[in-house]
Design a protein around this nucleic acid. Sequence first.
DNA 1: CCTACCGATCGGTAGG
DNA 2: CCTACCGATCGGTAGG
Lengths: 191, 191
Amino acid sequence: MISVRNTRSDVIHAAGRLFAERGYHGTSMRDLGKELGLLGSSLYSHVESKQDLLVEVVEEGARLFEAVAEQARATPGTARDRLAALVAGHVNVVLDNVNVARTFLNEARMLDAEHRERIVEARDHYEGVFRSVLADGVGDGSFRSDIDPKTSSIYILSVLNALERWYDPAGPLDRDELIGDLTTFLITGIG
Amino acid sequence: MISVRNTRSDVIHAAGRLFAERGYHGTSMRDLGKELGLLGSSLYSHVESKQDLLVEVVEEGARLFEAVAEQARATPGTARDRLAALVAGHVNVVLDNVNVARTFLNEARMLDAEHRERIVEARDHYEGVFRSVLADGVGDGSFRSDIDPKTSSIYILSVLNALERWYDPAGPLDRDELIGDLTTFLITGIG
DNA sequence: CCTACCGATCGGTAGG
DNA sequence: CCTACCGATCGGTAGG
């Protein structure tokens, strides 16, 4: 009595899985059908096109990260507290939605021009939140006064986004240790 | 009198360009032919298969990074000096070979099992050099004694590898400034 | 490096 | 969600 019929949501999530594993162009509609136990052609009763699937997955990613930004901005306390919220929130999104995060980070460039632009804007906005938290933190003494908020936010996001590439939830480092270790690294460096 | 005939090296470099821009599966042999001013079928007088091209590009990447590791290991002085050599060397490889670096970082997973394993080993070895420099640096006082060389090396490589995604050689930040800013961030953090 | 192909697979549609 | 397709494109080959 397992799974009688697939929903649109099932299709989108399976697409996220395959796009994350094999890439958008490495995934055929027939591959995706097989993953769901149906034919490639049957997918078109759930979505209009393959591109449509990529749009859905990538935009889900954008929404998840945007929610992190909003929640962090609403966090009371110092800029350092808000940065901690950004870091923890970002880690949680990546670890709880690896496939969506992977597709968002690696396959968004395969989007058609129109959708790609919207995602670039969303990404810029998200990075802007990091930047302004860092700038605030320079003002309130949370961070060093000689950092450049622009490059620093990119460095921080580089470390956070790369999690998708190496973090193993079954490995020795649990989520809280990861967040702690990461935060220490970002704030104190290795020196 | 420009370019009469293409060499195997021309083909490989053009392949790197397209693999970097559109991904391995997003690039057809006919696309690549067009890039070089010939037909897709003509490429088979230079290479045996499309996979062959990916192997060549990715293995060139592996060699470039390996050379950085060797040179850094031979650098006299403290572990901090050797880390500086790794950082500068890695940055130079990425900035001087964006297409190769991109393909190495993003498309190696499209390799067939056999070649992929070799690349994973090469990558593990490279990361191991970072790890041992960090461990040495904990011993000689270059770095904090409470860092974990394993996660720290991953964080550092995360920042270095992400350069491919955002650094603009035509932007305001020149190479030396970048290396300096990056090094300060890695060693001192933002706090 | 081209001509002239090959079988396989691609995204997608009509109609049920 | 399936049957039965469609034209286009894919990686690749034989022979020059």
